[in-house]
Amino acid sequence: MRNKVLTFQSTHHVLKAEKILIEAGFKFDIIPTPKNISSDCGMSIRLDSESSDMSFLSDVLTYNNIIFQIYDYKI
């Protein structure tokens, strides 16, 4: 169950995060940012917090200067 949503400051950050997370072996989906999180028409990353190493994820993104926020995913 992909239950968490990562949001970013810009589409460029989403693209950068996507590349980094694929290289780091994470499984995730690119989705439009759910309306209950933001009314911007931005993109987000959806993943499963149970099967993903969230602290490693946080470390790689922070190391690459990508600022992000984590939300629960609800439709």
């Binding site: 589409t11 989403v14 693209l15 996507e18 989906d29 690119i30 989705i31 439009p32 993109m43 959806r46």
Partner: peptide, 14 residues
Amino acid sequence: EELGQILIKACINT
């Protein structure tokens, strides 16, 4: 192109 690629992923995932 890279923008078009994330758009189509987001589209299908929706």
